[in-house]
Simulated assay, not measured.
Amino acid sequence: MQQAEDQHGVQADLVIVDQDQPRRRIYFLSGFDPRGASFYYRLFSEQVRQLKRRSGRRLQVGHRRGQQVDRLLSRWQVREHGALGLDFCFLHWDDIARAHWPKSPLVLLWDGIGIYAWYLLGGGYWKMRRWSQRVALCGLYPTLFVGMVAVVLTLGCALLAVVAAAWQLPALVLHGLQLALVVLGCWQAWRLAEALGVVWLFRSIRFTHRLGQARDGDLRGRVAELAERILSLEQQDPAAQVWLAGHSSGSFVMAMLAAELRRQGADQQLAGRLRLLSLGQNLANLAVHGKARGFHADLALLAQEPRLPWLDLTSRDDYLCFAAVDPYQSCGVPRPGAGAYPELRLIPLAQRQGLTSLGALLSHQFDLHFEYLRTAAPERSGGFDLIEELLLAP
């Protein structure tokens, strides 16, 4: 056993994977999130411990193998009674998220001008609103926050001008006080925006907008590498069942990857074993862009027979997802054949956190968006529990 530090400085044990065949392997794609595998390993481990305490099952989460072993995926396992039940493979595109994660407020403000010109004047808002009024309003959240800050600072400067006139202060002093107010106000507004998730949300909007403008070369290259890595691993160490899952913005990366797997021969190699799962998806955020022709082609390929089983889980309590929205209808991609695809399923998320009022629901949106990845008691789960589903025998 070796010791190594991951990219966040967290020390982890590196273990060689046993050769017994896992009952199930999940390839997981996180949303637009720079925190990487260490965050999701801690989240997953805690959820397994909660399930273990609640059910009495003898579950054990193994150590995480980090990017020092494999730059494309991090990996950990869950055993029950010594048998390998689940092999969890976190697929890395978090480094691409970090590369598209500007820290400067000025860069974000400048980019926001062009993005919201398209959103408000170019029809973006109405395209989103057609499929989800809540998502469309969430898209306005960053610009509404900036507008509110501008109004408050303008009123503050006007109040200072009134006070300066009453006290007969020199113009130079007034301008100095106004400048200090603007600088201090902007700094505090930035801190508040980060605390409320406004900055995170706009970075995600910015990245998806860039993908929608066909500036997706780095992500496309990574998707091709991930497909090759998955097929190689499944050839060397095949699992009885294979899941490809994407959460939030990871849902459209999942769709890209599933299409690329078909192009590379997964229909033959993984026949009958591969299924798709999207959690809190926002596929329409990308699909509504007319220039996202590569993504439209991916969806069209996935709709061809034989179709991969695809379950799409969303919630009307989650304002950051397109709840029960058919991704094919949202972008006008034809779907040959009969029957709905993917299978759209709604689950109630608010009851899992005991949220009963609109105020509580609105103030917990970002945390609620991660509720798909957590376990819950059966009476509160809403009919689906990801951790339990993953740990069931195929």
Results as ranks from 00 to 15, higher is better:
S249Y: 11
G250Q: 11
G250N: 05
S251H: 06
V253N: 07
V253W: 10
M254C: 15
A255C: 13
A255L: 14
A255S: 12
A255E: 11
M256D: 15
M256N: 13
L257G: 07
A258T: 10
A259M: 09
E260Q: 15
E260K: 14
L261V: 11
L261E: 09
R262I: 10
R262M: 10
R262C: 13
R263H: 14
R263L: 13
G265C: 09
A266P: 01
A266S: 15
D267I: 07
D267M: 11
D267C: 13
Q268F: 00
Q269D: 08
L270M: 04
L270W: 08
A271F: 05
A271K: 14
A271N: 09
G272Y: 05
R273T: 06
L274M: 03
L274E: 04
R275V: 05
R275F: 04
R275Y: 07
L276A: 03
L276W: 09
L277S: 02
L279Y: 01
G280A: 07
G280V: 04
Q281K: 06
Q281T: 03
Q281E: 15
Q281I: 03
N282D: 09
N285I: 05
L286V: 04
L286Q: 06
A287N: 12
A287C: 14
V288F: 12
V288E: 12
H289Q: 08
H289V: 03
H289E: 12
G290M: 08
K291G: 06
A292T: 02
R293H: 12
R293S: 14
G294W: 15
G294T: 11
H296F: 08
A297Q: 14
A297I: 06
D298Q: 10
D298I: 02
L299C: 07
L299D: 09
L299Y: 05
L299W: 06
L299K: 08
A300M: 07
A300H: 10
L301P: 00
L302H: 01
A303P: 01
Q304V: 00
Q304N: 05
E305V: 11
E305T: 13
E305F: 01
E305H: 13
P309H: 02
P309E: 05
W310V: 01
W310F: 04
W310K: 05
W310D: 07
L311C: 00
L311I: 00
L311G: 00
D312F: 04
D312W: 02
D312Q: 06
L313F: 01
